[in-house]
Design a protein around this nucleic acid. Structure first.
Lengths: 204, 204, 204, 204
DNA sequence: GATGAATGAGTGTTCATTCAT
DNA sequence: GATGAATGAACACTCATTCAT
């Protein structure tokens, strides 16, 4: 039932994870607990579904941004990726910290990995076709960027709720990503020279 | 009792946050629940104490790294900060994701803010005395770096457990930080030009 | 569930207030604790409900006695009120002291006030229509009588359990009430002459 | 230790019976729990001691009032007894309801009986020597008066805290007691004629 | 005699899950 | 398929009492 699903999100936003229980979700959805358990085997499944959808929205946004920037410049790619990610996070600011709590509370490694992999692949595709640069290992860069993006933002997004602060975050992150890409491309950093073919961060 | 404290960390590492309850912690510490409650007023206080200690160790490590790199080059500062942060996180890899779960579960904003502020101030001091560069707003850079560091690593550190992966993470993060600092200093990024006096990310 | 309600009364009578706990009540009612908490939000509510019912029975008994004695003589009114009150108390002799313990343990002032007010109003109505007397302030008398009745009996009813002792109590109380009413009506008491318009005891 | 005893009264007045625990009492007395348990075998003994003292003060006050009114008139005896009882209750208004809670909570029948018996005996002595009346059974009257006094007042004294209300209570009770005595003496009440030699209320 | 840290049974309350209707 | 009453294990926390120092 889609109503149950919506109710989960609403309860999460209004009452928080601790006060979320199956009865409350069912009541909000206008059904009985029994019905809820006919659609979701248990509470965890319910929460995972909510997290899964949030991550899917995120991945789709990044994929779209990358698709629209194939054959574009590095600058534009970096800008688009950061902007796309932050747009979604800001729009779901109410629940996204809670969703990350779910990811930690239960072991949602797979879910995070999947979303991370989709994003990293999309970014890699964009970087590989960039009009103004080539990389030894675009996949490494893509995974690192994804890790930084998925890691940095949510941990702080409960502190970056206002549009103003969100804007600042976007600018600084954009600068960081752009300069990272440029640094890796030109190969001027000592460290990079030695380790360009390392595994990098696992995106996810 | 220090045994209670140690037991909390152990239970957190072995059983996870959901399965952590006061009785279990007490039993592991070899004392009774009553004794536990003589040292900690409630469960939250117990968990906050664990988180607080972890964050203090982090902040101290970064402060030390910065103090040792006053009047140093930007490269060395970036290297030292990243290395210091990761050293601590890798050493506490078992529990640090769980500790961050605590921070989300209960509202530990203050604790995080304090640690973030200490780190940002130390980094700012180092950047301000850098031998090879001046910044319009070193505080902004310091806060952004802190945010990126504190945000990126813990969300993924349960995935970056092995020393090998830890090394890779260190390299990529170092490149990112170095190039970010250089980009901000030289002022070549379009975005930066427009927004150099923005407030940036709130570190914490 | 009515079984839960009955069980509360039984546990109160057999084990006393200190040994009454939700689990015991539930077991006695033949249900689980969870079920109990579906009908009563918490322990206090459970106990208040028991007290409330007892007080309602009392108030109804007095109201009925007064209604049946409108336009009757003072003697008959006094007799009827005392008899009605004592009938109920004797019938619930097992639990009524315990119920008063509840009233003291938690703050049940409102509940007591309500029952007292109902009784006082009924008595006032009867006194006002008495065929053989007029009073300056029938409300004052009614409130004082209520206070004396509600106060005197329960504090001692665990000592006045047997029908024999109950009978004695009834006689003495009846004499006291009758003579009080007569004294107030004829105005022969010195004290009364000075204070006939005082506020009297708050019934409840 | 007398300090422990005082502390019990204070904690009872400030924190109430529910929040009274041995540790708190000991701390307030400036001693350790261990010391407390050297003077009182358990918590109940501690509370009984407090109740005992309160009841003793009450009994002494009534005894004194009666002693001063031997060979006096019925009116004066009634006045003196009511006044003496209320004086003590009003003076200890803060704790007396709580003390009665103790009496109900634990089984303090003996303690109450003792105080009641002392009061009843003193009243009987006064009534027996009254200059203006003789009674078939002064002991019965004395016990009934004690029961009414001990019963009526405490149940309502938490509602009759202000001196003003206390005064009103005193007046009405005095009228009731006086007229009761007069009624019994003259033997005009129908009920009384039949039952003058009944056992009456057990004073306590 | 005094101390106070340690004990652990006991309490109120919650909530995921089941299953008879 | 839908319901929601019933379940009962689990948990945070308290406090009377003990006993080694």
């Amino acid at each position: 039932m889609d109503a149950i699903f919506e109710a989960t999100i609403q309860v999460l936003a209004n009452d928080g994870l601790i006060r979320l229980n199956t009865t409350r979700v069912a009541r909000r959805a206008g059904v009985s607990v029994g019905t809820l358990y006919q659609y979701f085997p248990n509470k965890q499944a319910l929460l995972f579904a909510a997290l899964e959808r949030h991550l899917a929205i995120l991945a789709i946004a990044i994929e779209k941004a990358c698709d629209e920037n194939l054959h574009s410049t590095l600058e534009k790619i970096a800008d688009a990726v950061v902007k796309a990610y932050l747009r979604v996070q800001m729009a779901q600011a109410e629940i996204s910290p809670t969703l990350y709590r779910i990811a930690l509370e239960f072991d949602a490694r797979e879910l995070l990995d999947l979303a991370g992999r989709r994003s990293a692949e999309a970014i890699e595709a964009a970087l590989s076709t960039a009009s103004d640069g080539r990389f030894a290992d675009p996949g490494l860069l893509a995974r690192t960027m994804t890790a930084a993006l998925y890691g940095t933002v949510p941990a702080f997004c409960h502190r970056v709720l206002s549009p103003v602060d969100g804007r600042e975050a976007e600018k600084q992150l954009t600068i960081m990503f752009r300069s990272y890409l440029v640094a890796q491309q030109s190969g001027t950093a000592d460290v990079e020279r030695k380790d360009a073919n390392g595994a990098g961060l696992q995106a996810g």
